[in-house]
Design a protein around this nucleic acid. Structure first.
Lengths: 95, 95
DNA sequence: AACAATACCGGTATTACTATCACGCTCATG
DNA sequence: CATGAGCGTGATAGTAATACCGGTATTGTT
């Protein structure tokens, strides 16, 4: 296995990310925000619906810019529920 | 063309990102940081050398966590050297 | 000199992201 | 009812990210 498939946890995290982006978009049009971020509407739609669980860094960055969001807040909010505040320490994956 | 190839500007931005990550790593070992971030050493190496210009969002997020960096600062620093401060306004890509 | 550790590079394999196209659904307006 | 805007979903296509492997070079230690 050369490229590990996405785990269910990855997909859940992607869903949380999409949900947050959609909330931040609020009443604005999807195509409007997508255009402002410089990505296609379909891509934004898939990100919002969680069908792109791990988007590119600069894609999320552009979206955060278009939505006036902080990336740090975004990652903190996409952290699994229960990992409150412990952002610096990786979950110590049995390493 | 279904997926636009990376532009030279994208690659330059990737190089800046890699350079920043490498500076932040400082004296620490590459494999150590890669392990802390939960990614493979090869991947971190390619990111640092700019051979992965647009890494996944959560990959950069994990690295920022392992290196104790702010993502907002990171994107601000990876912005083209002339877009000082104008972080909210998209470069208005002729849209 | 031999060895280990670190880092760079190339190739290979597999998965994932991104974009376009096409169709359906809902709601508002005429 | 017809039309349009906005959103959702599936298929298709092409490029990129990620990981593993082997080779190489440098440095430090014994």
């Amino acid at each position: 296995m050369v490229r590990v498939p996405l785990t269910p946890a990855d997909r859940e995290r992607g869903e949380r990310l999409g949900r947050l982006l959609r909330e931040a978009r609020a009443d604005r049009s999807l195509v409007d925000v997508a255009g402002a971020a410089g990505i296609s509407a379909e891509t934004l739609r898939k990100i919002e619906t969680g069908r792109i669980p791990t988007p590119a860094f600069f894609t999320v960055s552009a979206l955060a810019g278009a939505l006036d969001l902080s990336l740090d807040v975004l990652v903190a909010a996409t952290a699994p529920p229960g990992a409150a505040g412990a952002r610096s320490g990786r979950p110590a994956p049995a390493a």
